[in-house]
Every structure is written in C-alpha cells, then in structure tokens.
Design a protein around this nucleic acid. Structure first.
Lengths: 164, 164
DNA sequence: ATGCTGAATCTGGACAACAGACTCAGCCGG
DNA sequence: CCGGCTGAGTCTGTTGTCCAGATTCAGCAT
C-alpha cells in the first residue's frame, strides 16, 4: 500500500477493455475511412472506392466485415431501369459512432488543422453557435476536467488519476 | 437546386479532412493501443511490450513515429543504481486525445460490452455520478441531437444532415 | 571480466495490401 | 436473341508490412 512508484500498467488490461475491443473491430485505416464516409452519407461500393481510392479487394473485405459486425446493413436499391444493387447503410450501432468521430474531428481540427478554421462544425440549430464535445452530468451540465475522476467498477481499485 | 438524389459523396473529401489526417496518424491497431496505454499512464518500452504483446520491432517503430509527430515526448528516467533510459510521456497534443478516447470507450461499453457494467467510468468528483460525453454550447449546456446541425465553413455549402 | 537488464535491431517466413484486368448479373436497345 | 452497358465485385502477381525469436548493445553491478 505504499505509494512507491506510479503504476506501470494500465488499471484495465487490454484484454478486458472494451475500447481495445473497439480498436480490433474498427481500428484500421480503411475501416475508419469507410465509417467516416458512411457517416457522411456514402452508401455504394463504387462511391466508397472513388472517394477513398481504396483497393477494391480491401474495400470488399472491409464492407463484409463491417456488415458481419452489425456496423453496416446491406440493403438493395434500384435505379430506374437498372437491376437491383446493394447499398451499405448505417445501423444504430454505427450511427452511435457519430459522437466519438465528432470528438476526434474536433481534436484533429485543433491539433492538425494548422490554425485554419475547421472545415466542418456541428452547430446549434437555435442560434448557429459552434458546439463542442464535453463531459456532462445527468442533467446535461458540463463538468470540467478538474472535477472529473476515473473509477474502476470491479476488482476494488479506485480513483486512478489516469486517462488524463 | 432540385433535391434529386441524395449526395453520393462526402461533403468534405478525405484529402481536405482533418479527421482523415488523424486516421493516417493514429489509425493503426498498435498505435491506438499504445495511446490507450499511454493515456492510462504507461511510459516504458517494456511495459508497453508486456501489456500489449506487440512485436518489439513494431513497438519501436510506432514509438518513433509518435515521437516524431509530437504525440509522445522522450524523456530520460533513472532508477537508482541503473543507467538512464527513455520514457515516453504524453504531450499536450496527445493528452487532448483523452476526450475522443473516452467517447469511444463509452460507445464500446454500450455496444460491445454485452450489457455488463462498464469496467471504468469517468465520474464527478463532487457526487460520484457517472459522466457522459455530449455536445455542449459555449455556456456548457448540453444540446440534443435534434438541435444540432452540420455546417461547412468554406465552399458555401451548408446544413448537410450528415455525420448522423 | 562477467553478468544483468532494458531497449532496441536483425532475420526469415507468413500474411496483407496494392493496381489493374477480369468476371458476372441483369437490364437495355436493336 | 445478341451484344453492349453498368455496378459490384473477384482474380492475379507483386510489393510491402507484420511477426516471433534470437541477437545486439549500453551501462551499471559484483
């Protein structure tokens, strides 16, 4: 119990970590880019291919995986006078990735954007002001970083000052 | 101006997208896992290796890249009676990744966690309640999804109902 | 000297990415 | 009925990256 040196391991090993599981599922360059485009409304094989420049083999593979994982739903469409072809739609599961993606977008605008104004922003419909990602309590009020604390639920540990 | 078929491309092509740039920088399985561990306080080569099981070649390469990109800072430490060795510390740039990572953690707890309670949570220091990631206005009040809108700054376009 | 330890690099084989051409299904016009 | 068109893939050979295990290397210790 002596607070000797700081912990040299994560409080939560990667095997038990849902975040690490998420990385295994979507933490791949093309998969991330596909999801980005899908969240922006792209749905067709050739549109993904044209927009991303991904090799068609890789694209086919990733769409298959994402569909199997429940992150994309295959659904036929039909242009008039054409045969039916598949589209890949967002599912509730992948639609819920919007918030993490917006958070990372704001990070990249701030740290990779070379001080240019962000090309896209999420704004309030009411008054048009730009919104930002933050941690809020149950009532929807922002809680500042200094008032946050990391808590482990199982295995008794508590209050590591980690993830920050 | 006819609202014919929905747009078949992203409003922001990947080449101009900071998010896509972020994927190129950190959108790799090991890089993401390294950053996860780093945010949890891991700092040494062998600790990363032991925790992640990553091949040492890959680990050396990723630490080099992350250092070059300003996401990790190399700094020597010295255990008593040992020679100096490098540690890899978070920088302000990578510390700012905390929020996107928390957002993705909450997504993965919700959608990959098989209904078990989340193993870690960010809580309020004041009353211990769990916090969640949300979009807030300048005053720190949550703005609900229905009141959000996506805005493109350049090239005149506006209000695509995208990223959701 | 010799060993130890943490931080890497080296090596050969397995695996995945890539570009480009090809296949395939179905709807069309003649 | 035939050949062409289109979108969505698959096939192919090459090139690159990953990986595990062994090896190197620096400096402190006995």
């Amino acid at each position: 119990m002596s607070r000797a040196s700081p912990p040299r391991r994560s409080p939560l090993p990667p095997q038990d970590c849902n975040l690490a599981r998420a990385f295994a599922l979507i933490g791949d360059r093309w998969t991330l880019l596909i999801l980005r485009s899908a969240l922006y409304g792209v749905r067709r094989f050739d549109d993904f291919a044209a927009e991303l420049g991904a090799p068609r083999t890789v694209l086919a593979d990733r769409l298959k995986r994402l569909t199997a994982a429940g992150l994309l739903a295959r659904r036929d469409y039909r242009e008039p006078g054409r045969r039916a072809r598949p589209e890949y739609w967002l599912t509730p599961k992948s639609a819920a990735l919007r918030l993490p993606f917006v958070a990372l977008t704001q990070w990249s605008d701030a740290w990779l954007g070379e001080l240019r104004p962000p090309p896209v922003a999420v704004c309030s419909r009411a008054n048009g002001e730009a919104l930002r990602v933050a941690l809020v309590d149950a009532a929807g009020r922002e809680v500042e970083a200094s008032q946050q604390r990391l808590t482990l639920s199982a295995r008794g540990a508590t209050g590591a000052e980690a993830l920050g």
